[in-house]
Write a protein that binds this DNA or RNA. Structure first.
Lengths: 130, 130
DNA sequence: TCAACAGGTTAGAATAATTCTAAACTAGAT
DNA sequence: ATCTAGTTTAGAATTATTCTAACCTGTTGA
């Protein structure tokens, strides 16, 4: 499907910048990226776009479901006095974290760790809302 | 165990500020907090400490294992073209994320969702290193 | 086809979390 | 008591992101 149609499907006006970004993003190569990396790619293609526009567009894309944003627990660093291995509930209404004892979670299946790597911990985040 | 001893156990010089923070943090009440919330608490107790010191101390505490820092995938927002539900490997050497198909992970046990809440998604992060 | 306008783009300022700098201080060893 | 390496600090610097306000451009309906 062409990019313009895709944008229209999501009720987004297919402006020059959105088309540019959509092409860059939905080419099947980029899976994870940041606003900065996208801008670099665009610039290195000889085209230009402002960072503010990239943020506007990507946030818009996320809000309509064309993109996902990798979960971050807000933009501040959260410290935890519980230094043992454990998991968390994330109260989406307040941003509050609640500990989950590791014994409360069991796995029946886990993926193969990529070649050359070893596991360094599994963290589960269960998002909850009222 | 008193706080001074605890600091010494971790090879940290028990300075006035570290003792102040350790008391505040390790009183069994605070579980999750930020630099700002700790400063507010300290100030409201009539004592004072600079934010820079709080960051210095907390980071030090984390580096010796007295505290944990809740995982964030760096400080930049990462977008993902895969909008379907899935999990991630986090390559700790590079910060790179790799998708995990949700069928690759199965649970044999999950915790009870707190009363009054409903689940809004489970996210698994498997940290890997070379 | 085209005017009008709602919505989109932009440079640069603003904001906010965190780190850096470099000068002053202090715990602990001598 | 003195020295020194490690700490603390105010304020500057940095970095990611959002805001502002002026300008621009798709789209709609005449």
């Amino acid at each position: 499907m062409n990019v313009v149609k895709k944008l229209r499907n999501f009720n987004l006006r297919p402006t020059k910048q959105r088309i540019l970004l959509a092409k860059q993003i939905l080419d099947g190569k980029n899976k994870h990226f940041t606003a900065e990396t996208i801008q670099k790619e665009v610039l290195s293609n000889g085209q230009s776009i402002s960072l503010a526009t990239i943020y506007n567009c990507l946030n818009k894309f996320v809000s309509v479901g064309l993109l996902k944003q990798i979960d971050q627990q807000g933009e501040v660093t959260i410290f935890d006095t519980n230094v043992s291995h454990h998991h968390h509930f994330l109260n989406q209404n307040t941003g509050e974290l609640i500990d989950i004892d590791p014994h409360e979670i069991g796995f029946s299946k886990l993926p193969k760790i990529p070649n050359g790597f070893e596991s360094d911990g599994v963290e589960v985040l269960i998002k909850i809302k009222e």
